[in-house]
Computed example of a mutant assay.
Amino acid sequence: MLYGILAALAALLLAAALAALLRVPARRLGVVDRRRQRVVPLCGGVAVVLATCLVVATGEWTGAAPLGDGIQELLVAGAAVAALGLVADVRRVKARFLVGGTAVAAACVVPYGELGPGGGMLAVGWIVFVALGFRALDHADALAGTVGVVTAFGVGVVAAAELMDGPAVLLSVLAAALTGFLMHNWPPARVGMGSCGSLFTGFLLAAVAVLTRTGYGLASSAEVMFALTAVAAADVLLVLLSRRLAGRPLLRGGPDHLAHRLRRLGLTPLGATVLIATAASCAVSVGVLVHIGWGTRTGTLWVAGVTLAVVLGLLRVPVYGLRRPTGVHVVGRQGGVPGTRLSGTRRTAAGLATGRTAAGLPTRRPGGPAAGWPPVQP
C-alpha cells in the first residue's frame, strides 16, 4: 500500500517535470500542434510514457512491486506503440501504418490460450480500436488525459477485484502520470499529448481490460469493456458515421469530434471537457459495478443505448460547412472586355482574401458586385 502511494506520487511529479522540461525542445524541433490559433508542443505523451515505464520498471527491479507474468511484455509492447506514435508526431505517418503496428503489438500480448484463435483476433481488434479511439480524443485540451485517468482508475479496480496486482499497479502509475501531465494540459493547454501518449494510454487500458475479462463469457465481456471505454468508442463511431454520410474520406481530419460539436452547441472548451469526462465517469462506474457483481447487464445496455443516442443526436450538428461547386464562375476582364464569364477558373486562398483569382482577375461574390472591380487607381 505504501509503495503504491509512493509510486503514484513519483509518477505524478516525474511526468509534470518532464512535460515542463520538454516544452522548449519540442518547439525547436517543430513537434507541435495548432489548436484554436495556439501552437502547443506535443511533449506530454513522451513525459507520460517515460514516467510510467521508469516507475514501473523501478518497482520490478527493486522487487517492491513485481509485475507478474506477461506484464513486462505488455509494458514493452506499449512502449513500442508509443515509439510508433512519436514517429507520427514528428513526421506524417499514414493511418494504416499506425493500425498495423498497433495490431502487431496487440497480437503479442493477447492470451490466445484462454481466448482461443477467434477470441484472440477479436481482442486484437478491440485493443487497436480503443488505442485509436484515445488518439482521436486528443483533439481538445485535457480531454484524452482526463478520460484516461478515469478509465485507468476503473480498469485498475477491475484488475484489483481479480487479484491481479501487477496490472493494478501499472494502471495506478499510469493514472498518476496522466494527472501530472494534466497540470500542463488543462485549458488553455501549454503542452499536448500527441499520438505517442494517446496510443500508449489506449493500448494499456484496452490490453489490461482484456486480461481482466479473460475467462468470462464473450457477450458479458464485450458489454463491460464497452462501458469502460464508451467515450472513446462514441468519438470514433461519431466521426466515422459523420464522414461517411458527408462523403468525406474517412482518414481526413476535421472539426467533427465530440468536443468540436459540443462547442458548436455553445459550450466552452472547458465545459465540453468536463461534460465528456463526467460521461466517461458514469460509464466506467457502470462497467466496474457490473464486473464486481453489484450491477446487472441492464446497466451496460443502458450505456450502449445512451451512447448510440448521443452519437445520433450530435450527427445533426453541422460541422463541415457548405461544399463549394466544382466550376466557379468568375467575372472579370478577358480581352479588355469587362464582365466576361470565365467558367472553371480556380481560386487561391490569397485570391479569396484579395478578391482576385489565380489569373489575377477579380472575383464576384454571390449576389454582389465584383470584388476588386473596378481596379483601384494608384
Rank of each mutant, 00 (worst) to 15 (best):
A136K: 10
F134L: 05
A159M: 09
L182P: 12
V191H: 00
V173Y: 02
L143A: 04
F129T: 14
G125S: 10
M121E: 12
L182E: 13
D165H: 12
A140E: 10
P188Q: 05
F153E: 09
L178V: 02
L178S: 01
V158H: 06
L122N: 04
L122I: 10
V173N: 01
V155F: 07
A168N: 04
G192T: 12
F134T: 00
F181P: 00
S195F: 11
V157P: 05
M164S: 03
A175Y: 12
A177R: 05
A142H: 13
D141I: 01
A175I: 12
L171V: 07
V157M: 15
H139K: 08
S195R: 09
M193S: 03
L163C: 03
M164F: 07
G148T: 03
L178H: 03
A161G: 13
F129Y: 14
A144S: 15
N185E: 13
A131K: 04
A175V: 12
R135L: 15
S172H: 06
A144T: 13
F153C: 14
S172C: 12
V157N: 10
T146M: 14
L170P: 03
T179Q: 11
C196K: 08
V147T: 15
A168D: 05
A161L: 12
P188D: 02
L122W: 11
A177T: 11
T179L: 15
G118E: 15
G148V: 02
L137D: 09
A161M: 10
G133A: 05
A123C: 08
C196Q: 14
G145N: 08
P187E: 05
C196L: 12
A131E: 06
G120A: 04
V124S: 00
V173L: 06
D138R: 11
A176H: 03
I127R: 00
G148M: 04
A160T: 11
A161W: 13
E162I: 06
F153S: 09
L178N: 00
A177C: 11
W186D: 01
H184T: 11
A123F: 10
A159K: 01
H139Q: 11
P188E: 09
V130D: 00
G166Y: 03
G166L: 03
V147I: 13
G194F: 02
A140F: 01
V173S: 02
D165L: 15
G119L: 01
G118L: 15
L174D: 08
R190M: 13
V147W: 07
V147H: 07
I127Y: 00
L170T: 03
G118F: 15
L137A: 08
T146W: 09
L174Q: 09
V155E: 06
A152L: 07
V191E: 00
A176N: 04
F129G: 05
V130I: 15
L182Q: 14
G118P: 10
G120W: 04
T151L: 09
L178Y: 02
P187D: 03
M193L: 14
V124P: 00
V130W: 04
H139T: 12
M183R: 15
M193P: 01
M164D: 02
G148L: 02
W126T: 04
A140K: 02
G148A: 06
T151I: 09
V147C: 14
A159D: 08
G156D: 07
A152E: 08
V173E: 01
